[in-house]
């Protein structure tokens, strides 16, 4: 084989590859263009807007870091951050534990297993706005079903949606209803845990509690990590349920601002006050907060997440 034929072959392969690449890019171009125009551009321009005074109808006016300075002096920024952290710690974290608990139950070998699994997943299918509206009926302070039950048990009946001390617990209560996806994902992870581990542990005399902490929990820890990170991000974008519960565009934070979450406050700045500069600054601060939290979770994950085949 002469050097020139090798060269020609190589060229042929290279140009065929290049052609394939171009065709591939062409087919992907609707998505690429969509991403560039509707995602990347807005993301980048929002950073510029965060440095301006921009109210939509006239051109943005550059103000440097003023929006950020105002934000860190804004008591409602801290209030919304507090409410968001509250719903994350007392809402999302227990709900994650709850979905694991339900997944463990659903993983037991009982009759009618698939029916139970369906039942626990069903509420997740209902759109968030619809289920929030439904829960507003259930949690009605005067005639709601939840309070009817509490009354028949002789317990106190809070004004769930009107009392600032009870609005967040009301949202958290509703959240437990929608843990179906987390449960199904945990269930999938549980079914991946090798049976031999449990058999070996049983032979060694490990009880159920030990089996859970020494085998189950470490085995499904990658799933916990995944749910923790996606859940944290979702929790910091908490919006729909609170907006529906507040039920008043002029008082988006609900009674005493108790349902003013970070995303609802951002929405208020952007669409009630048309203060796009301030809202953009809030969006970037949110990005930094979520980024830092995600990095922290990843850093600590080395200590408690185990992947199959690794130590």
């Amino acid at each position: 084989m002469s050097a020139s034929t090798v060269n020609a072959n190589l060229l042929g392969i290279r140009s065929r590859r290049r052609k394939a690449l171009l065709v591939g890019l062409l087919f992907a171009s609707p998505w690429i263009l969509g991403f560039l125009i509707f995602q990347l551009y807005p993301i980048l321009i929002s950073f510029y807007y965060s440095l301006t005074d921009y109210h939509l109808m006239s051109a943005p006016h550059f103000t440097g870091l003023k929006n950020y300075q105002d934000l860190f002096r804004d008591p409602k920024f801290y209030q919304s951050l507090y409410n968001t952290i509250y719903i994350t710690i007392f809402g999302f974290v227990p709900q994650l534990a709850f979905s694991l608990f339900i997944a463990l139950l659903l993983n037991m070998n009982v009759k009618g297993q698939s029916i139970y699994r369906t039942i626990f997943f069903l509420p997740t299918i209902v759109p968030l706005v619809a289920s929030s509206l439904l829960w507003m009926w259930l949690l009605n302070g005067e005639h709601g079903l939840v309070n009817e039950i509490l009354r028949s048990l002789g317990m106190g009946q809070p004004a769930w949606l009107a009392d600032p001390n009870w609005t967040k617990p009301a949202l958290i209560l509703m959240g437990f209803w929608g843990t179906g996806i987390g449960t199904v994902m945990y269930l999938a992870a549980l079914q991946d845990v090798p049976r031999e581990y449990y058999e070996a542990a049983a032979i060694d005399g490990a009880g159920p509690w030990q089996r859970f902490w020494k085998i189950t929990f470490p085995s499904i820890s990658p799933m916990t990590l995944f749910q923790l990170i996606t859940g944290l991000i979702g929790s910091f974008q908490y919006f729909t349920q609170a907006y529906v519960f507040a039920n008043d565009p002029n008082n988006i934070g609900g009674p005493g601002g108790s349902m003013l979450f970070y995303a609802t406050y951002l929405y208020q700045q952007a669409f009630s006050f048309l203060d796009m500069g301030y809202a953009s600054a809030m969006a970037w601060v949110l990005f930094v907060i979520v980024l830092v939290l995600t990095i922290l979770v990843f850093r600590t994950s080395a200590r408690w997440v185990y992947y199959g085949g690794e130590k």
């Binding site: 009605n140 302070g141 005639h143 009946q157 004004a159 009107a162 009392d163």
Partner: peptide, 11 residues
């Protein structure tokens, strides 16, 4: 009382 009033109002 705020709670009494707000509860009544929700009906």
């Amino acid at each position: 009382g705020a709670n009494q009033m707000n509860k009544f109002k929700s009906g």
